[in-house]
Design a protein around this nucleic acid. Structure first.
Lengths: 359, 359
DNA sequence: TTGTAAGCGTTATCAT
DNA sequence: ATGATAACGCTTACAA
């Protein structure tokens, strides 16, 4: 724990607090001896306002730095110009996606409220309720790894509030969604390892109920089958989506009687964990064992050996999500069946490259 | 760019949209043939409501899933229970701090609106305006690297809206602030390198107007002086707060006629950049050259050699920031001179450890 | 062209 | 113990 000290700084710049009460339409009306409705109309350039009045109103509004009260407007219009975003955490991938969402939303005049569920279903519920109470105009949600029940999603829909699921989506639910083609990602990683001559390929997957994990695993299984490679259950490990668990799991894998000669981990954090275990064991990549991760985080090219990884275009997914959301918000077509799928792309690096690429 | 495909999914679960209009106090009043004020009182357990009425009201409220309209309340009370957070970006350190802020704020019943300025002064202004318009109850701000003028901060203060600066603070301004003791961080890093026998220590600092950078540099300079080591201007490099620039800068440093035998970088990203340049040059750490970074990001212990780095307790700073903010919000004492300083702690790793620690 | 009044959902102040 | 009314800041019929 850090030592905390508190003290008083000697400051040089002092702000004079001249407490400017927010100007309202009423203030302007009174000052100009007109009614509030006239002011309201003038400010919004209504056709039926005398040019003269209009000018006076606008001038005064400018002078008094009038800003319409958003709360009043929201109460009236039932629109807050705010989007509620719920995400499981703020790791590299999600932070990048949020950046993408933010960019597009801001552009369109929306403010984003980001809530982290911290991978907890309970907090996801709380967040949903809070945002619902705050009258956000819509939701952009990535569900937590704990989420198995969808009452909160249903609740949002019942209120006819636009909702888009992204990245960690829910399947078989009537909601527009956008996500990576995770099966394809698993396929690319696995096929690559096979192509590089690896024979016994293990997978480090996440929790059993996590869609992204299951899809990546599905891709792995499909690809093995297509290549007539037997599926070996002892090579399929489910562990927590985190480095330490991945390290432990890898240790166990490597001490099996018949250990794998390659590992595909469904995240880069897990790849790092695997890498640590591999190094401790004294094995070398890719000679003794191959490794492919997922997400293409910057770290993959920084460690030695650099780690091959599947790029998921997080920033683009973020932007596309916000666009889909806005499209939904402004169209009255039923888009609940809309599904956008982004293709991943494997980046090959040292950890898995046994064969020099024929360029 | 990713290939994007759109298709329609076959869904199995279908939500029946039974469009429940939000229940209001009025609905309950009408149904029960009482006035809205009675309902209001009953719901808030006022003493002067007949037990019977109270029960009936509460029962119906429950049944109709009544939720008080926050917008109406906010309009009335001029409080939104929302905190506006403005940060330059969502990198590891700031995301961690935000997590800390979020945790404490949520606990206290506040919702956080996070806006990224993307290191742009212009966007910081826009964000401030937006949050001001949204009637946030207060601000928690970390300024962008471009920010040199403080009109927006002044504006917040003039409106008497609580404001706390954190991490990337502004000096000499009458605002409560909380931040790392960056000078001390610079001192720890530098003294450590000296203690390990390094003689020519260079520093890779950030942009010239960045406070955290200047303080870390100040710590470096102080420490050299205290150790009677001459300050060599050619060893003090300012470059952009990012990996690629750091790599280039390091390349130049190393090709000087009289290159440094150690480098202190004021961020871990920059340390990584330096490391890449060092490796390209064929030098080995810590034998040929020492390296110390800043932030203690997970990556420092993952690369080889692992990188010594100064821990800044980002999560704790985040929590402390939110606590300071809440304290300010609920006290009417003038806290504008409050300053909380967190002590950093150097974590020594391979990149700089020449002398085995006498344990 | 402008003003009056009602309403958005809630609470606080007076009455009753 | 309960109700009527005004108010928060704004828009919008409807009148004038």
């Amino acid at each position: 724990m850090p030592v905390i000290s508190r003290n008083f700084s000697k400051t040089t710049i002092i702000f004079i607090p001249k407490m400017e009460k927010q100007t309202t339409i009423k203030d302007i009306a009174q000052a100009l001896h007109v009614s509030t409705s006239t002011v309201s109309r003038a400010l919004r350039d209504a056709a039926d306002v005398k040019a003269e009045t209009k000018k006076a109103v606008k001038a005064l509004a400018e002078e008094l730095d009038y800003q319409p009260n958003k709360l009043a407007l929201s109460l009236l219009n039932k629109r807050t110009n705010t989007i509620g975003v719920i995400i499981p955490n703020l790791d590299y991938v999600l932070a990048t996606m949020v950046k993408g969402i933010d960019e597009v939303a801001l552009e369109a005049g929306y403010t984003v409220m980001v809530c982290q569920s911290d991978e907890s279903f309970g907090r996801e519920i709380v967040n949903t309720k809070r945002l619902l109470d705050s009258f956000v105009d819509g939701f952009i949600v990535s569900v937590s790894s704990e989420t198995k029940v969808y009452e909160h999603i249903k609740k949002i829909q019942n209120r006819k509030i636009p909702l888009v699921l992204f990245d960690r989506i829910i399947k078989n639910v009537n909601v527009p969604k956008i996500h990576l083609d995770n099966i394809e990602g698993g396929r690319q990683a696995t096929q690559h390892l096979i192509d590089q001559g690896f024979k016994k390929i293990a997978i480090l997957a996440g929790p059993e109920n996590m869609n992204i994990s299951n899809d990546r695993k599905e891709g792995y299984i499909q690809t093995l089958k297509e290549n007539k490679i037997r599926i070996d259950k002892s090579l399929i490990i489910h562990c927590d989506f985190n480095q330490d668990f991945a390290k432990e799991a890898t240790k166990e894998l490597l001490s099996q009687k018949n250990p794998p000669d390659a590992i595909f981990t469904i995240s880069d954090r897990m790849a790092i964990g695997a890498m640590l275990a591999i190094k401790e064991k004294g094995l070398r990549m890719p000679r003794d064992i191959g490794l492919v991760g997922f997400n293409n985080e910057p770290i993959t090219s920084l460690v030695s050996p650099s780690i091959s990884s599947v790029e998921m275009f997080a920033f683009d997914i973020g932007k596309a999500t916000a666009k889909l959301f806005l499209e939904m918000l402004h169209s009255d077509a039923d888009m609940s069946n809309e599904e956008i799928v982004i293709k991943p792309k494997l980046f090959v690096r040292e950890s898995s490259k046994r064969i020099a690429s024929k360029k």
